[in-house]
């Protein structure tokens, strides 16, 4: 007698794993087959995908809708500059250090802005990002309001030749996106992830189950802040120049990221991937139109939010019942 089996993996998810491994090898070899411009673009795609995954973890899973993650992108970027220029650290170490420092400062920030509920929390995060921008603009040693460039000597620590530097920068971005995807996936499959899902479904019921909602949300906030800062460091390692307006731009680091996640599918792991691909496809074809392109993006996001709140991935999943990252449990009843 066999009862129903409960599994998470599906055939689609196993195929996706194999395809993923092949894709990874091909991507890792990109410096040998891709042109400079393509390499740069792919690196940027990876970093945006990372930001999108992290924002999605906060907003889509933990219910922490932030419009101020640029605070940590910019913080990570500035830490790269500060720790290398004044601390003499290797850039990669400085980027990791930026992540640790971001985790540390995110705790007091969270204790303050967690007092704001729902949409007011969102604007509270924006205020924090403004505080960061204005504060870093006051630091004259980092160029004040006009910003500064990474000294050549430090740049050379990444690689002696330009091509080498670009390859390293690319690999770091690829490594980062892998780490972020893996971290989010493992987190969501862990007990904490289950707690998060319970909170998303019903805060009242979750607290009844003995889940400390505040603490769980804090953990998500700290982890995403730290990883967002690391990504910020990598972004400005690509750019080699930083200024308060670029580092703490709400458009670049939050608006685009939100659009990516909403269009792809909020609250799903696959959504940010699809959304990032759509975003860059649109950008590469419509970028010449400038402001019109941004208006179209905003309009698409509104329409998706109203007509298909689970985004493009939600539409695909409903139609084909597939899941690339096995998160949900499936019950298989043995055939009679």
């Amino acid at each position: 007698m066999t009862g129903p089996r409960v599994t998470r993996a599906t055939r689609a998810s196993r195929i996706a794993m194999v395809l993923g491994a092949v894709t990874l090898i091909v991507l890792a070899a990109a410096p040998w087959w891709a042109g400079r411009a393509d390499l740069r673009l792919m690196g940027e795609i990876f970093l945006y995908l990372s930001l999108a995954c992290l924002w999605n973890l906060m907003a889509g899973y933990a219910g922490l809708v932030s419009v101020g993650q640029q605070a940590f992108v910019g913080f990570g970027g500035y830490m790269l500059f500060a720790l290398t220029i004044f601390g003499g650290l290797h850039p990669v170490v400085a980027i990791a250090g930026g992540g640790v420092l971001a985790a540390l400062i995110s705790v007091p920030i969270a204790t303050l802005i967690f007092r704001l509920k729902g949409a007011y929390f969102a604007i509270g995060t924006w205020v924090m990002a403004e505080v960061f921008r204005l504060a870093f603009a006051q630091i004259q040693a980092l160029g004040g309001g006009s910003g500064t460039s990474l000294p050549v000597a430090i740049v050379k620590e990444i690689g002696r030749k330009k091509a080498m530097r670009e390859s390293v920068s690319y690999w770091l971005a690829l490594g980062a996106v892998l780490c972020v995807l893996l971290a989010v996936y493992v987190f969501l499959r862990s007990r904490r992830g289950l707690a998060l899902t319970a909170i998303r479904d019903s805060e009242v019921a979750a607290s009844g189950l003995g889940i400390d909602i505040w603490r769980t949300k804090l953990e998500v906030y700290v982890v995403t802040s730290a990883l967002t800062a690391v990504i910020g460091g990598l972004i400005f390692l690509q750019k080699l120049r930083i200024s308060p307006d670029a580092a703490f731009s709400v458009n670049d680091w939050t608006a685009f990221v939100i659009f990516i996640v909403v269009i792809g599918g909020i609250g799903t792991l696959e959504g940010p991937i699809i959304g990032t691909l759509i975003f860059f496809a649109l950008r590469e074809t419509l970028a010449d139109f400038g402001t019109i392109y941004l208006m179209v993006l905003g309009l698409v996001a509104i329409v998706v939010m109203l007509k298909a709140p689970k985004g493009v991935w939600g539409l695909i999943r409903d139609r084909f019942d597939i899941e690339l990252f096995p998160l949900s449990y499936r019950v298989h009843h043995p055939k009679d």
Partner: peptide, 20 residues
């Protein structure tokens, strides 16, 4: 809370760029 937040956020970007 997501739909009103994200829709008005999209609206914000649209208005800003239309003015631009």
């Amino acid at each position: 809370i997501l739909p009103p937040l994200l829709v008005t956020f999209g609206l914000s970007v649209i208005i800003q760029n239309a003015l631009l």
